[in-house]
Deep mutational scan, measured.
Amino acid sequence: MQRVNMIMAESPGLITICLLGYLLSAECTVFLDHENANKILNRPKRYNSGKLEEFVQGNLERECMEEKCSFEEAREVFENTERTTEFWKQYVDGDQCESNPCLNGGSCKDDINSYECWCPFGFEGKNCELDVTCNIKNGRCEQFCKNSADNKVVCSCTEGYRLAENQKSCEPAVPFPCGRVSVSQTSKLTRAETVFPDVDYVNSTEAETILDNITQSTQSFNDFTRVVGGEDAKPGQFPWQVVLNGKVDAFCGGSIVNEKWIVTAAHCVETGVKITVVAGEHNIEETEHTEQKRNVIRIIPHHNYNAAINKYNHDIALLELDEPLVLNSYVTPICIADKEYTNIFLKFGSGYVSGWGRVFHKGRSALVLQYLRVPLVDRATCLRSTKFTIYNNMFCAGFHEGGRDSCQGDSGGPHVTEVEGTSFLTGIISWGEECAMKGKYGIYTKVSRYVNWIKEKTKLT
């Protein structure tokens, strides 16, 4: 034993070699072989497995989906700052455009905790909710729209109204504003409101030439003092309507412009014939205590009207009353817009006519005020429907199939267009061939041609 100890002390290297040989010859039971080890760690190889990531292109799944990435790591994937920024906006807080917040056709661009709407022409605001041009839906104005110097929408209202708090709607500024039905039992019968379409306001006024200088022999019209197929109006439903009495009662109609003036057809009036105007009328054979009678003290036909040349060209006249009318729910003026808007309103496509005229061709006159909704007829169809001249200051309205029309005794009465609950004068009943005849239409004086003249002559002093 002493000898062994001496050998170990003198030859430590020998001992180490012996131990190493023993270990190498022993069977290893701690580690699995290569094949079995792979069965336990069965993990798919990654895209760049075996390579240094710093030297390969980034992978979106590896960089940002398996674990949260930084902007720089995302930049490695896209290799483009702009594309990385677009991805980053949604990656950080989701897609803010998912709810489609942009209105009126706006395009949404996502941002971090926010979004941006790219608005089409005519709109602005956070969600493109603000109209900035009158060309689109009248700028959301209830009545009139004008573009300011910086191309912003400025709404306005006709006389007797003021802008509401929203700067879009119009509200009454006087007790009985024009064009409004205020009798409670008839307010439910107000005709369907007309909503502004998209309009090209630059070209809204037709490029028409008034044929002022045409000389033409007097034409022989049949029954051209021209509501057939209409309905009984309720008291106060058309408070701007008046009836004219002269040699015979209810020979023509008219509309209240203001307390002192009536507008009617020029062919209705004769110099030297006494005319009485009755406002607030409903049943011409009954006294309903809503009527107001006034005498006409002055007749002003349009300066281009000449019955000797043509009885229905420039067929418009103004009547001055001896005493002002007292405005109330049964006696209310009709609204008159400017030339541009009167023309736009007419193009809405349908209007209402009213009167006490004959209820059928050569038949009896109506006792109760009649009204009828009539569609506008395109000019080409209008011209083809008659052998008589249709001037540019006239328009056609009615039904091709016949059966409904204005008729004798309705002449001078109103053709009105309702705009968001307020009625505007767009025409004056003038003439036609018979009444409600198939293929024939009622012919009306186009008020847009005469609004400046009306307003100039009827100013209240």
Rank of each mutant, 00 (worst) to 15 (best):
Gln96Ser: 15
Ser411Pro: 09
Asn80Glu: 06
Leu189Phe: 13
Gln408Met: 13
Glu420Lys: 05
Asn42Val: 11
Ile316Met: 03
Glu420Asp: 14
Arg180Met: 06
Phe221Leu: 14
Cys407Met: 06
Glu98Tyr: 10
Ile15Gly: 04
Ile40Asn: 15
Glu165Asp: 12
Val296Gln: 01
Val277Gln: 01
Pro197Gln: 12
Phe251His: 12
Asn147Tyr: 08
Cys145His: 02
Cys155Lys: 01
Ala149Gln: 11
Pro120Lys: 04
Trp240Met: 01
Arg3Ser: 11
Cys155Gly: 00
Ile112Gln: 14
Val243Trp: 09
Glu288Gly: 06
Gly254Pro: 01
Leu41Thr: 08
Tyr444Phe: 14
Gly230Phe: 12
Arg62Asn: 13
Arg83Gln: 14
Ile136Thr: 05
Asp322Cys: 02
Val153Ala: 09
Glu66Asp: 08
Asn138Tyr: 06
Val202Gly: 11
Ile112Ser: 11
Cys396Gly: 01
Ala366Asp: 13
Leu325Tyr: 03
Lys455Gly: 04
Ser220Cys: 06
Pro120Ile: 04
Arg180Lys: 13
Pro324Asn: 04
Met65Arg: 09
Arg3Val: 13
Thr332Lys: 07
Arg449Phe: 10
Ile334Tyr: 01
Lys247Gln: 13
Trp240Asn: 00
Asn222Thr: 09
Cys102His: 00
Glu165Met: 12
Cys119Tyr: 00
Thr81Met: 08
Phe360Arg: 14
Pro414Tyr: 06
Arg384Ile: 07
Gly230Ala: 15
Ser70Met: 08
Tyr115Gly: 00
Asn310Asp: 09
Ala366Phe: 09
Lys45Pro: 12
Tyr22His: 06
Gln185Cys: 06
Gly402Glu: 14
Thr332Val: 14
Phe251Ser: 09
Val416Arg: 02
Arg226Cys: 06
Glu420Leu: 11
Leu163Pro: 04
Val359Glu: 06
Asn127Lys: 07
Thr186Phe: 14
Glu320Ala: 03
Gly246Leu: 04
Val195Met: 12
Gln143Ala: 02
Gln90Lys: 09
Cys18Glu: 02
Ile334Gln: 00
Gly280Met: 02
Leu369Asp: 03
Leu103Gln: 12
Asn138Thr: 05
Cys382Arg: 02
Lys152Gln: 10
Asn135Cys: 03
Asp95Arg: 14
Val30Thr: 14
Val181Gln: 12
Ser354Thr: 14
Asn306Phe: 05
Ala337Lys: 00
Tyr371Ile: 10
Glu281Leu: 12
Gly351Lys: 02
Cys108Thr: 00
Val451Leu: 03
Leu41His: 13
Thr209Asp: 13
Thr16Glu: 04
Thr29Ala: 08
Ser255Glu: 02
Lys39Cys: 03
Gly349Ser: 07
Arg3Lys: 09
Thr276His: 08
Cys407Val: 06
